[in-house]
Nucleic acid binder design. Sequence first.
DNA 1: CTCTCAATAT
DNA 2: CATATTGAGA
Length: 288
Amino acid sequence: MREEDSNWFSRWEEELPSPDELMPLSQTLITPDLAMAFDIRNPHTTTAAQQQQHQPPPPSNPSSLPNPQPTSAEFADSAELGSGTAGEEPARTLKRPRLVWTPQLHKRFVDAVAHLGIKNAVPKTIMQLMSVDGLTRENVASHLQKYRLYLKRMQGITSAGAGGPGGAASAADPAADHLFASSPVPAHFLHPAARPNSDHFLPFVPVPALHHHQQQQQLYHHRQVGHFGSPPNGHFENPFMSRPSLQRMGGGPVHNHHPVSGYVEDMESANAASGGRKVLTLFPTGDD
DNA sequence: CTCTCAATAT
DNA sequence: CATATTGAGA
């Protein structure tokens, strides 16, 4: 019944963060928009007051994680502010747009949690392992809360029949939680003690060997309408090839997720039912 | 200090 | 509605 547990493991190799991109430290204190607007890739805003906890060692997995490339962020956002809505606020205390947890982003989240082990899966660590720029601890914490609830809820019903690791969440769940249901729940995520024999599966535990400096890739993409490819450098770049980067668009994605396959939904679009809400979202990295 | 959880706000 | 934010307890 359950023996291919190591499946999820293999998948990791495809997305495992290289040591290079580990330790993102995206505590961007400056406005993302601002930072990007100025092409700042090295915000030292951090007063060197964080960094106290080290975490899991970069899985020395030679995996091919096509990580975030230094995609030159392009600008295209015509800031039309009627009155001091955001002219230049103090870099601190800025509100970020709502983070939109797209399946891909959630996947990274789940992967991170799975690899860290329930034990070490705490917001900070998860955030670091995810290496998603712009992601904050609060973002992860909030989502983690929901995710845990989802798991608990699921454990009740989903006993057998869940055809294997790949579809652990395919129960007849009335709880078809749109987002959660689409991510392969690793296999166990329940109690730490319910692990039959996969202890050594998590080779990387806590190896506080994290040193390096911040390397953050602020791939905030500003997208206007229906056209991109206006590289500041005059080079052509494929926006859809980027790695996890947050993008903020306006309006509600109006349910763009679809089953399988990369989707090139039309981002932006008027806000459906949310008024002009700026949202942070991340690219459909079309790799699933 | 950070994590977790519940309630609440947007 | 999906997130964010806050607050209390550990």
